[in-house]
Amino acid sequence: MASFTWSGFLCLVSLISSLIQASHQSLPLPIRDIYQFSIPTYIEGVYVRSNGDLIVTTVWPNASIYAVCGATTDAPTISLIHAFDEIGAVTAILETQPDVFHFIGGNQSSLGFGIHGTYGVWELDLRPANGTNYTKSTIQELVRINDGGFLVALETVPDTPTTLLVSDSTNGVVWRVDTLARNYKLGIQDVNMAYPPWGATPFGIDDIHIKNGYLYWSNSYEATIYRIAITDNGYPPAGAVSEVFKAVRALFLDKFSFGPNDGDTIWVAANANSQLVAITPDGNATFVAGVSDQMMLAGPTGTAFGKLKGDTNTVYVITGGGLVSPINGTVIEGGKIVAIDTTGFF
Rank of each mutant, 00 (worst) to 15 (best):
D85W: 05
T118W: 02
S137A: 15
P76T: 04
V177S: 10
G88D: 06
A129C: 13
I78D: 12
Y119L: 07
G70Q: 15
N171C: 07
V166M: 04
S79H: 10
P161M: 00
G106F: 10
G70W: 03
R176F: 12
G70A: 14
N183H: 15
P158G: 03
A83G: 07
V121C: 09
C69H: 11
T77Q: 13
D168T: 02
T156C: 06
T73M: 03
F101Q: 00
V157Y: 08
T73L: 08
F84I: 00
L165S: 05
L151M: 05
F150H: 06
G120E: 01
L142E: 11
K185W: 08
Q108A: 07
D147A: 14
G117W: 10
S110K: 14
D147L: 10
T163V: 14
D125V: 09
N183R: 12
V157F: 10
E155I: 05
T163G: 05
D168F: 08
I87F: 02
L124P: 01
I145S: 01
I78M: 13
D159T: 11
S79N: 08
L164Q: 06
V68I: 14
W122A: 01
V100I: 11
P158R: 04
A89E: 05
A153H: 06
R127F: 13
A129S: 15
I87H: 02
R144M: 06
F113Y: 12
V121E: 01
Y66W: 13
S137F: 01
L94M: 04
E86N: 08
G105S: 07
V121A: 00
E123L: 05
E86K: 04
V90K: 04
R127H: 13
Y119D: 02
L164H: 04
D74C: 14
T179V: 07
V121R: 05
L111S: 06
E141G: 12
H82P: 14
A92E: 07
L126P: 03
P158I: 10
G88L: 09
H82G: 00
V173P: 03
L126T: 00
N133C: 10
N130V: 05
F103T: 00
T91A: 11
W175C: 07
C69I: 07
D159N: 15
K185C: 04
A92Q: 06
D85T: 07
F113P: 00
G149F: 03
E86A: 15
P76E: 14
I81P: 00
Q97A: 14
T96A: 03
V152L: 09
F103H: 00
D85F: 07
A67L: 09
N107I: 00
G148A: 07
Y134N: 03
H102W: 02
A83V: 05
Y66K: 13
T135C: 05
T118P: 10
V157T: 12
K136G: 08
D99S: 11
P98D: 04
E123Y: 02
W175P: 01
P161E: 11
L126D: 05
G148T: 04
V157I: 15
L151I: 06
T179R: 03
L94S: 06
